[in-house]
Nucleic acid binder design. Structure first.
Lengths: 190, 190
DNA sequence: CTAAGATATTGAGGCAGTCTCAACTTGGCA
DNA sequence: TGCCAAGTTGAGACTGCCTCAATATCTTAG
């Protein structure tokens, strides 16, 4: 469970590091059970810590999410590079889109945070979202060059589409989400 | 502003009717400004009524939404019939999908309520959602018969797709929502 | 080993929101 | 006019967010 610290410069005090890690672990558990809108009080409680401690480590819910997700989002960006090396332009795009959707489905409510954050520069998740957006863009451009995707599709379209499918999956069933993603990707053909 | 009452059997007392209507009007205004998750206290406050009165008229947020939206959803179902009479199968479908999305965009947060409610029989919005789903299904079936839509697409797909596009529009921009809807509808081609 | 001081934690408190219900009004009818 | 069913009120019991003065704990220099 790697921890992407907001300020990894100075070494943390031992108790602080312990609480930090415990908070992340419990947050992951609580969000997995109840979605990203779960009570932060509950997270603090389960971590055996006062709520003020949680807020001092993670000033906002988004900061907490960032710490939980940043690593996975970097991996996703790397995956895009890997897939581009191994698969045809179109297969790389569709495979990656599925992986991105799987990542977005990790916690209920995540799609909303991720789609909002991509345009909101004040969000702690903004940078990670941009990273993913950029990775998608490279795959998209390649597919457009190969002529399997219409020229007017943008990275923002791709990102919206992945998140929208993940969101629909949250509201109904994962299978419905997958179907939606398939339809949308088909809709990108020239 | 027609009011679809949950129990329109007995005539209401004059003061009750007045409060009922005022609550609906203010709810419409507040939801338009702040989305469907706006504070119900705020609605009661603006209607000049104690919060208990609001709850006695509309026991849940969904009941309030139902009263606000039911009429529009019936209209949407009727529109489907009209369009089927005037346009080609495929044009009727796409035109109606746009109308449905426009309706879903009326208040921020509405897409979530509507997509959830279609499967949730305990929701006060369930019946209205089913009505819309059914209307979509008829248009979809007709387009499938005409061979312009793939045979494996379902009414649930269409409904999810409309709501997902509306949702994406809420999170980013209306234009992005429109683009998504276009892509998805294109993806329904055989 | 100790104590000063930097660092971190605590939890009560202010705020807002949801929902309920016993006590109170009030409209409409006989 | 006066009754009472129907409607309204608003305090109160929760839960959750977030802050900050007081307190506790680690670390390190002497």
């Amino acid at each position: 469970m790697p921890t992407a610290d907001p300020a990894p410069r100075r070494r943390m005090r031992a108790d602080a590091r312990r609480n930090h890690d415990r908070l992340l672990a419990e947050a992951a558990a609580v969000f997995a059970e109840q979605g990203v809108e779960a009570s932060l009080e509950a997270v603090a409680r389960r971590a055996g810590v006062a709520n003020g401690t949680l807020y001092s480590h993670f000033p906002t819910r988004q900061a907490l999410l960032e710490a939980l997700l940043a690593n996975g989002m970097w991996v996703l960006a790397d995956t895009a590079r890997d897939l581009a090396g191994h698969l045809s332009a179109h297969e790389a795009l569709t495979t990656w889109a599925r992986a991105a959707m799987a990542h977005t489905t990790r916690y209920r409510g995540l799609a909303t945070s991720l789609l909002r954050s991509v345009e909101d520069e004040t969000s702690e998740l903004h940078a990670a979202c941009q990273e993913v957006l950029g990775a998608g863009e490279r795959l998209l451009t390649r597919a457009q060059a190969a002529g399997t995707v219409r020229a007017d599709a943008t990275a923002a379209d791709l990102y919206s589409l992945i998140n929208a499918a993940a969101w629909a999956g949250e509201q109904t069933s994962p299978a419905q989400g997958e179907r939606l993603l398939s339809f949308c990707i088909d809709g990108l053909r020239p």
